[in-house]
Simulated assay, not measured.
Amino acid sequence: MRKQCRVMVTGAGSGVGQAIFKALRASTLPVTLVAADITPMNAALYRADEAVIIPRVEEANALEHTIELLLQHRIDVVMIGSEFDLEFFSLYKTEIESRASVLVIVAPPETVAIANDKWLTAEFLRESGLPYAEAYLPKSQEDALHKAKEWGFPVVLKTRRGTSSRHVHIVRDTESLEQLFPGMPLPMLQRMIDTPSSELTNEYTCSVFKTADGNLVGPFTARRTVRGGTSWHIEVAAFEELYAPLLLIADALDFVGSLNIQLMLTSHGAIPFELNSRFSGTTAVRANFGFNEPEMALLSFFYEEPIPVPEIRGGVAMRYHEEVFIENTNASNLALSDKAVVNNWF
């Protein structure tokens, strides 16, 4: 019989954090879910078994405070639900694990750096001999205009660091580039791979899982549309033409657990444009269709058991907004012991 595992999910109020929760709720493993976030106004805190407010990772005493909380709440495993926590837990993984007797599911700092920086992502793919979208770091607005004209419009103007399509623009002419460039933090240009669509056509969100002994599980492949930087309609199927490039990327990168790969399928083949060395906002969708990465992480890294070959089913997922309700309180008097209700609307 497996022992109870106390799992803390950071960024529990984020889309990724909530997806991890849903996947673990769908699992049959004996898990106590501890929601962790930096403010009380996060819905998952009131739907978990237990909840805790954790420090912002940029605070001066964040490391000591985090270790104290992990010990206080007897946490066995930490799963990262916020991209803002990745660098911190990756950098201090060894110390946190040693001092708090906990397992942190996080990629090495070098991999987190590659995944968090879109320029480094493109360079990693290029240097590894893998398909990539050509990128350029402009030294000035004039330099950006020169490169865009050399490539030909449209081009993509984006920040090197960012998530959920923040600061990502398809630039179709000189005037638009002149308007957008001054407000772009850490700007980079990238060739257009293909035009994003509101239909399920050419954009994919995929995953490969690496076990504790280095074996690869998957890949999981799904076609998607995007709304507000989030996968909105997801079609899960065995898109076999993507398998080889996905496994080549996974072979080339040093990661732990989940590797999320966003790509376009073009007339020149599959071209990845984003890597995330963490759980995904579509983690719950994957779990529903048979590819439960948080469960696999616990089986492989915590219970040290082999992972059965996932039986991935095909299907369609559609996102919608949901509310949680906490009765007889107000925003200034919320207590972590409060429990929220989700209505069964339909």
Rank of each mutant, 00 (worst) to 15 (best):
T94G: 07
G269W: 06
N61H: 14
G228E: 10
I20C: 05
A317G: 10
A244N: 06
E127H: 15
R278P: 10
P108T: 13
K22C: 08
L45W: 07
H268C: 11
S258N: 15
L263V: 13
E134R: 13
L334Y: 11
R47E: 14
V341N: 14
V112H: 04
D143F: 09
A238Q: 14
E199D: 14
Q4M: 12
I170W: 01
L70F: 03
P272W: 12
G11C: 04
K147Y: 11
H65R: 13
P185R: 00
L263A: 08
L24N: 00
L130G: 05
M188E: 05
M318F: 14
K118E: 07
D251I: 04
G162R: 01
G315I: 08
V256E: 02
K149V: 13
D254F: 10
N42M: 12
E142R: 09
E305V: 02
A48L: 06
M296V: 05
E240N: 14
R74N: 15
S197K: 15
I114Q: 05
G17H: 01
T282Q: 07
A287T: 05
A250Q: 01
V342K: 15
E97G: 02
F153E: 05
R2Q: 09
L298Q: 04
L69H: 06
N292A: 11
A43V: 00
N260Q: 09
A43E: 03
F291C: 10
E68R: 08
D117A: 08
L24S: 00
P306N: 01
P109H: 10
G218T: 10
V16H: 01
S140W: 12
E83P: 12
N333F: 14
E305G: 10
D194T: 10
A222L: 02
G81V: 03
F302A: 13
L125M: 13
S140Q: 13
T10V: 01
H233R: 15
E127R: 15
V78P: 04
V171A: 01
D338T: 11
M184D: 02
I170Q: 04
G269T: 08
S198Y: 13
L91P: 04
R286H: 09
I261W: 00
V78D: 03
A284Q: 09
L24C: 06
L259F: 08
L180G: 02
D76W: 00
E274P: 14
S140C: 11
M8C: 05
R6F: 05
L189M: 10
C5W: 00
R278I: 03
G257Y: 00
